[in-house]
Amino acid sequence: MSEFTVTVFRFAFFIILWLFVLGVAGVLRRDIFGARRGSRKSRRGRSKRSAAPVPSPAAAPRQSPPPPAAAPPGGGRSQAHPGAIRVIAGPLAGTSLMLSGAPVTFGRAPDNTIVISDDFASSHHARISAQNGAWVLEDLGSTNGTIVDGRRIDSPVRLRIGTEITIGHTTLETQS
């Protein structure tokens, strides 16, 4: 085989090699190239998908499939209802969770949505659920209490964006 063909093959090899890398990057796009762009896209897609079959209470606090899609870029931020919670301090820092249909529970027991391995957390410590069109945090009779923005709560509180929730050594923040 001529030298020229071999050279062509060599470059073809490089092309598919880098195609592979680009393919991987494409699959991981949202992870690698920042989340914001992907999130708007996925949120739009999701609202379409979830609009039809959601009789769950989630639809209420999610408040409107249309606004995120129709709103100008960044408009989602002004929503008063949080769309996600993120662990900002504690052993699980960095974990985040979308608030969707099911209630989110916190505590030491492994059946919680977020398992907090902490001596200061009770086995089922607190819960966030949808009530009357808002996300409501309630303490489930924990020993050491749930602290919201520096105050220990004794009755369920409605969550807004930017609320800080402290359970044991773990601090969570609600986000849009």
Binding site: A35, G38, S39, R43, R49, S50, S96, M98, Q175
Partner: peptide, 15 residues
Amino acid sequence: MSANVAEVVRPRPYR
């Protein structure tokens, strides 16, 4: 974060 979000709400298996 939102990648996380998307995966938790309606995760795509990407198979």
